[in-house]
Simulated assay, not measured.
Amino acid sequence: MLVCLLITPIAQAGTYRWVDENGQTHFGDRPPANTAADEMTLKATTPSPDEAVRQRKQRMNEFLEQTEQERSERNKAEAEQQAKATKHAARCQALRARLKFLKSVSGIYRLNSEGERVFVDDEENERLRREFRARVQSECDI
Score class of each variant (00 low, 15 high):
98 R>Y: 04
66 Q>L: 08
29 D>Y: 03
95 L>K: 04
91 R>I: 07
101 F>H: 12
41 T>S: 06
25 T>A: 08
37 A>I: 01
53 V>Q: 12
31 P>S: 02
140 C>M: 02
120 V>F: 01
94 A>V: 02
103 K>E: 10
46 T>H: 10
55 Q>C: 08
81 Q>T: 07
53 V>T: 09
52 A>L: 11
14 G>C: 08
123 E>T: 10
25 T>H: 04
119 F>A: 12
82 Q>F: 06
96 R>Y: 13
3 V>Q: 09
107 G>D: 09
104 S>M: 08
53 V>P: 04
75 N>I: 09
142 I>C: 10
118 V>F: 07
10 I>C: 14
105 V>A: 10
7 I>A: 14
15 T>A: 06
10 I>Q: 14
97 A>T: 05
112 N>M: 05
110 R>A: 13
106 S>E: 15
40 M>C: 14
105 V>F: 01
108 I>R: 00
125 N>K: 04
98 R>P: 00
118 V>H: 03
88 H>R: 15
62 E>I: 01
126 E>K: 12
132 F>H: 00
127 R>D: 13
114 E>C: 05
88 H>G: 15
137 Q>P: 01
133 R>M: 09
100 K>M: 12
32 P>C: 08
49 P>L: 12
9 P>G: 07
44 A>F: 08
129 R>A: 01
25 T>G: 01
110 R>T: 13
12 Q>I: 04
42 L>F: 00
50 D>N: 12
118 V>E: 13
50 D>M: 03
1 M>K: 12
31 P>R: 01
57 K>S: 14
106 S>H: 08
17 R>K: 15
62 E>K: 04
102 L>A: 12
78 E>N: 14
117 R>A: 13
133 R>C: 04
21 E>V: 06
87 K>M: 05
46 T>V: 09
50 D>V: 11
66 Q>H: 01
51 E>Y: 03
116 E>N: 14
32 P>G: 04
2 L>W: 07
96 R>G: 04
93 Q>D: 14
86 T>H: 11
113 S>T: 05
13 A>E: 09
8 T>Q: 15
21 E>P: 02
61 N>T: 00
34 N>K: 08
50 D>C: 06
60 M>K: 09
87 K>I: 03
135 R>H: 13
34 N>L: 13
2 L>D: 14
98 R>S: 11
55 Q>G: 11
58 Q>P: 10
116 E>H: 05
50 D>G: 09
29 D>N: 12
42 L>V: 11
7 I>Y: 02
130 R>T: 05
109 Y>D: 10
67 T>R: 11
129 R>S: 03
106 S>F: 04
121 D>E: 14
80 E>D: 11
9 P>E: 07
16 Y>C: 05
16 Y>N: 05
